[in-house]
Design a protein around this nucleic acid. Structure first.
Lengths: 230, 230
DNA sequence: GCATTAAGTGTAAAATAGACATTTATTATT
DNA sequence: AATAATAAATGTCTATTTTACACTTAATGC
């Protein structure tokens, strides 16, 4: 099947770039890698790849994520498309950015060597190639808006976590400090956490209780039409 | 200049589709047109076009907007990219959607005939081709979030407007009715409107005062770091 | 048993959001 | 000239949400 109107139109390379975020050392971290080819070989870059004709852009993003982290089935959403003419110094490439929130513990560290990749703190992010810094900035923006509405932060943590950890996660997203009591108060009114018996003694003598996210309760509340803000 | 890594990659047609919104009859309206070519010739469609290699996707969107409305220099933002494999029944096309908020009075009506286009109320939007309904839905979502933060609504109105009109605009965006007194109270605390002498006698015997948006005051407040919500 | 460390806890004030009903200006009608 | 009709304009009180703020507690190492 071929239609006349589609003839003689320009076509483009289309890439996906992934802003892969994890949480470590009480701060958001981003996975970046040394670019292995020209132009700008050796520059710091987001994880990217080209879209193939046998996959959707969402699929391409999931493939790239898996390729660089070994992680599958992850929270991933589109940021936006970047379509400036000279954004890629090699050729005209239109890139669709996606961000992923991953539990950094699931990261396959052997892949870090393979791809010359590393996690860097958001606050220490170096200059990246092309418009990748802009992509990160746009992502943080989305994250801040989104985190206030949906409990996406939990994607960044393991099964169980302490409230101090959860709080620093949100402080890292919002890039401002939050009052401990107010933070907990709000969490408790939402009633989507389950307190466990066990404590994490890693960072204090007293130890902080572990909690886990109660997805059933959350989904139930959502269905009742409740909104959230954290 | 040509780099090895870019060789042999699949390339794609890239389109822009524009969700062009205006405000009329106390409701948001969207410009749609009969598609003039196969496949789905005659189906209702958003205003679209292909990106050319000599323009960015933003530029392509502005070009398409101008082509179909005669309007230039308009508030326009990207919605997102749509990259499903079979979203376009003709060929594989990746589309980047943009929404525009236009003052419907500036619309060149001769273009409506030329392109078999018309404004339809959001509430009466027919089924559109491909994933265009989804694009509209995503746009409304963005608009609702965005309108709560920035005074984007004013892009849809002329230089001067009445408060009842402004209120129905926001009711149309939020798709819910707003209390008149609370709406005005909030507006007044923002202090970004200027009351004019003149009244609009079009819709009542008493007449409603015209106001205009005070952009200087608004920018000033923004610089002071104030937030808004409407 | 004392010092150290971070975890855990409650209350009061301020700001914001939401509910609600009457008066007013103007025009058309008798 | 009085009256009816229409939509515009206006203010208060209550409920909810947000913010500010400081001490006690559990566990460990010395």
């Amino acid at each position: 099947m071929s239609f006349a109107f589609y003839q003689n139109k320009d076509s483009f390379l289309v890439a996906v770039d992934c802003i892969i975020m994890g949480f470590r050392d009480n701060e958001l971290n981003i996975l970046i890698a040394r670019r292995p080819f020209e132009p700008l070989k050796g520059g710091w870059s987001l994880m990217g790849g080209f879209v193939n004709s046998n996959e959707s852009s969402d699929e391409a993003a999931a493939r790239v994520l898996n390729e660089f982290t070994g992680i599958d089935n992850i929270f991933m959403e589109q940021v936006k498309a970047y379509g400036e003419i000279n954004r890629d110094l090699g050729e005209r490439v239109i890139s669709i950015a996606y961000y992923a929130l991953v539990n950094i513990e699931l990261f396959d560290t052997t892949l870090a060597e393979k791809y010359d990749a590393k996690w860097v703190r958001l606050s220490l992010l170096p200059e990246l190639i092309f418009d990748h810094n802009k992509m990160v900035k746009d992502t943080i923006n989305i994250l801040q808006r989104k985190a206030a509405i949906k409990p996406i932060g939990f994607n960044l943590l393991g099964e169980q976590f302490t409230l101090p950890t959860l709080q620093s996660l949100y402080e890292s997203i919002y890039q401002e400090s939050i009052d401990k009591r107010n933070f907990r108060k709000k969490l408790m009114t939402m009633d989507i956490l389950e307190k466990l018996e066990e404590k994490d003694k890693g960072s204090s003598k007293k130890g902080a209780y572990y909690y886990k996210f109660n997805k059933e309760k959350y989904d139930q509340l959502i269905q009742q039409g409740l909104h959230f803000s954290l």
